[in-house]
């Protein structure tokens, strides 16, 4: 294991541990309003102060992390599985399945990522379910491309040829011989994709299309804190720092994995 990977994993473990133990680390309920102490500065009771409704920022930051991390990881799983499966099929069979999958892929990649995600969420209505559908609909293409390319190389190799010559069924060759050997690239990409997905969730939250208030979410928190940037900067910057640190951890894991796998 490389040092980068170890450091990234450690950092992510700390972040995940903190958001998982949010009830223990925060003295307040993230939704609990205290209208007598709005926009308060840091104090013993509120380590990062309170927001415009008097809610504890520290508590909201931790609970928001739960939402962002959970959605980020979960929303990468579907594109990973669907995209990799399509990449395996397209690469292995070639011919019309390949042509069909690649045409759809070309259409999806013709649009910028955010434009398409926002359009889908807009059409389906704001909320967590829409985020999942939008990110899956747009995100699978990268996995298909990566896996298809790897399959095109691997299927010429002796072990796949030998399996074909032995009359092994296609599903067996795909699952037993190709998938384990071509998915490592996709796994590395998934790490950086989680960063991208969390950023997308945060962006959608900032635009009011994501997790709906009053549930805490980093993007929505940044947006809500923006008017008070000059008088109470922690309101917008604390969730920003959280996003950056989480992104850093995941990037380090991705780089470390890539180095370890010799990619």
């Amino acid at each position: 294991m490389t040092r980068t990977l170890a450091a990234g994993l450690a950092l992510l473990a700390v972040i995940a541990g903190m958001v998982a133990c949010a009830p223990l680390l925060a003295a307040h309920n993230p939704g609990q309003q205290d209208l007598l102490h709005v926009l308060a500065g840091p104090s013993a009771a509120h380590p990062l102060g309170t927001d415009d409704l008097g809610r504890d920022i520290w508590a909201r930051l931790l609970y928001a992390g739960r939402a962002d991390l959970a959605i980020g990881f979960a929303a990468v799983a579907a594109p990973f599985v669907i995209g990799s499966a399509l990449g395996l099929l397209a690469g292995y069979f070639g011919g019309w399945p390949d042509a069909a999958i690649m045409r759809v892929l070309d259409i999806v990649v013709a649009f910028p990522f955010y434009v398409l995600v926002i359009a889908v969420v807009f059409a389906l209505g704001a909320g967590v379910g829409s985020i999942f559908i939008a990110i899956t609909a747009v995100g699978w293409v990268s996995y298909t491309r990566i896996v298809r390319g790897e399959v095109l190389v691997a299927k010429r190799l002796g072990y796949v040829q030998a399996a074909r010559a032995a009359g092994l069924p296609a599903w067996r060759i795909l699952l037993r011989h190709l998938a384990p050997n071509v998915l490592s690239q996709a796994v590395v990409y998934a790490m950086s994709d989680i960063v991208l997905t969390i950023l997308a969730v945060v962006t959608l939250g900032y635009l009011g299309l994501g997790v709906q208030p009053p549930a805490p979410e980093w993007g929505a928190m940044m947006q809500a804190g923006e008017p008070y940037l000059s008088i109470h900067p922690a309101l917008a910057t604390a969730p920003g720092v959280a996003v950056v640190v989480t992104g850093l951890a995941l990037s380090m894991i991705g780089d470390g994995l890539a180095a370890g796998l010799g990619i």
Partner: peptide, 24 residues
């Protein structure tokens, strides 16, 4: 296009020993 039984009649050994086995 061979049945499984037909497929096993002819078997091959390939050139590159470093690519001819599933690494896993």
């Amino acid at each position: 296009r061979r049945t499984r039984e037909q497929a096993r009649r002819v078997q091959m050994v390939f050139q590159d020993p470093y690519a001819s086995l599933n690494p896993r």
